[in-house]
Each structure stands twice: as C-alpha cells, then as structure tokens.
Design a protein around this nucleic acid. Sequence first.
DNA 1: TACCGA
DNA 2: CTCGGT
Length: 208
Amino acid sequence: MEPLEKILTASAELFSQYGFKTITMDDIARRSGISKKTLYLHFANKEEVVNESITWYKNNTTNACVAVLDSAGNPVEAMVKMLAFFDSMFKRINPMALFELERYYPAAYKSFRSMLLEKDVALMEENLKEGIKKGYYREEIDTNLLSKLRIETSIMILQPNRMVTDDHTITSVAMEIGEHFMYGIMTAKGIKLYTEYKAQYIKQTPKI
DNA sequence: TACCGA
DNA sequence: CTCGGT
C-alpha cells in the first residue's frame, strides 16, 4: 500500500471514530505505520490532511452509492437500499466528529455537505421518473421539485436543527424523514414493494 | 527520535 | 503539559 493511501485510510478511520480535534499528527503517523517525516512529505499541515481525508471519504462514498444503485432491481429497492446505506454510514460516524469538523475545519465541512448535492439530485430525479413509469410512484408528483426536496432535507439534518436532539439521533431522524417522503410519493403497488424491502434491508431499532 | 515554540 | 511542525 502506498504511503498516501495508508495516510488517508488511517486518518479517515481515526477522524470518523474519535473526531478531528483529539486526533494528533502523531496518532495519524502511528496508525499509518509511517514516520512523521513521511507524513509531512505528503501533507503540508494537519488542515491539508483533514481536507484530503474528507475528499477521499467522499469519493469512496460516491462509489459505494453507485454500486448500491446498480445492485437494485427497481426504483423502490434502490430507495430502500440507499436509506439503509446512509443509516449504516452515519452510525459509523461519531456525532462529535461532524461538530468539530464544522467548528475547526469549515472548508472541509462545506465540502463534505456538498457531497450530497452534486449529482445526487439528478440521480434522485431519475429514480422518481423511473418509479412513476413503473407504477410505484404517483404520476402527479413534480419530480424536479421533489428530487430537490429529498436532497435538501438530507442536508438539513446535518445542520443544527430542532429535530436532532438527545433522544432523536441523526440516523433515526433520517429514517423517519425518508419514510415520510416515500409514503408521500408511492402508489399502493409501490407501498407493497416498499414494505417487503424494508423488512429485508432495514433493521428496526426500538423507537424512543 | 529528538526537539522547539505556541 | 500538549501538539503541530522541523
């Protein structure tokens, strides 16, 4: 494994688990199995490690998303799989990490949030159109508007808001909103499929 | 690994 | 003392 790759995997793992402030350059060097000298050969400072680590994480996530979408046999299955995918992703991220990223590395935080924006609206609209064509979603829905709504709400819950509280985590709020969205667009035929896939892909955690 | 400076 | 940086 190349040193750069080692650094990025190690730092993304450490940052997501322990946050950005508590992890030191010594920690990253040690976990990467390289010297600090080599570390500074690839990065000028810690901020650069944070930024590159976020970019690397973003690319990995996008690739994983595309793989998930490709593996779905129909639009409803794709939607349920994506919900399960983001649920497991956010469960692996320490909430403090997002907080520290926003406070100490605002540029990287904005870049992380924009990950959800770029082509995801387009992918979402594609899913909605396909779902209407196959009779799973109501044909009256405005696909252009609702694809944007779906992405905007995903971003909303990452910012301070009235929904994510002590007894409602990001993942539980994301799940509830995702379900609310689905029931707003599906036909009876779609709901039948949705219920089957949900039981299959999403582990139910007890509600608080 | 040792060390400096904030 | 800790931690980014040399």
